[in-house]
């Protein structure tokens, strides 16, 4: 992953969680930083409640808007089950940012299926990539006073890994969101960044396998 090759970012969640708006904002920020951008969403037929996937491709020149399985640099999961469902999109050096929170699909709430355990989720993601960062963004959105800022918290977390300035993010957030919710979203964005900063600064080498340490070294150049 480098700037020349760009970033393939998959954002996933449940209809109503704001995945599409988040990927719109991410794409706009990337465009204002001079990149070619293509984004494409896959939604079910209803307004809400289904699985939602956004592909955002950022590079000097993009052709297909669809990210190939096994190519994603980042998987940004707004919900655990949706995150693991699309884990096969990841490159081996890809990073998963996962909201550690669940919404039962109707297949589970009606007893037709079972929500996967945390162990099963971790094991599935580990089949494809080593770097997973989990945090409870839903709880953070409640702390901030509005569950609808969940998507902005996730963007804040993702922004930590991308070479775009905070001021550009703030500019686009302020333009794209209704005036009365801009402030709370700017706070949510900051909170998302702070969550990652906190996790990274607390990470002990003991928490990481040897391979991951190497990856982290490489990735560190983008933290600057």
């Amino acid at each position: 992953m480098d700037i020349e090759h760009g970033f393939d970012i998959v954002l996933v969640g449940v209809g109503g969680q704001g995945v599409v708006l988040a990927s719109d904002i991410l794409s706009e920020v990337a465009m204002r930083n001079g990149y070619d951008v293509k984004k494409t969403d896959t939604l079910g037929m209803a307004q809400r409640g289904g699985s939602v996937v956004s592909n955002v491709r950022i590079a000097p020149k993009i052709y297909s808007p669809i990210i190939d399985r096994g190519d994603a640099n980042f998987l940004v999961g707004f919900e655990k089950l949706e995150t693991v469902r699309y884990a096969d999109m990841l490159r081996t050096d890809g990073v998963t940012l996962m909201n550690d929170s669940k919404i039962d699909p109707v297949s589970v709430s009606t007893g037709k299926g079972e929500y996967p355990s945390d162990q099963a989720i971790d094991a599935e993601i580990a089949k494809y990539a080593d770097n997973t960062i989990k945090f409870d963004a839903t709880e953070k959105s409640h702390e901030l006073g509005n569950v609808k800022v969940l998507n902005t918290i996730m963007l804040g977390a993702l922004s930590f890994f991308l070479p775009f300035s905070v001021s550009k993010w703030n500019e686009v957030l302020a333009e794209r969101l209704p005036a009365k919710v801009v402030d709370i979203n700017l706070d949510a964005f900051k909170a998302g960044r702070a969550i990652i900063l906190d996790i990274i600064s607390r990470a002990e080498p003991a928490d990481l396998s040897g391979d991951v340490e190497e990856e982290k070294e490489e990735n560190n150049q983008y933290y600057m």
């Binding site: 209803a46 307004q47 409640g49 089950l81 469902r85 884990a87 109707v106 299926g113």
Partner: peptide, 12 residues
């Protein structure tokens, strides 16, 4: 990928 319970679109 492994099988996971589907999240079909649902009435709101």
């Amino acid at each position: 990928p492994d099988y996971f319970p589907p999240r079909a679109p649902a009435l709101c």
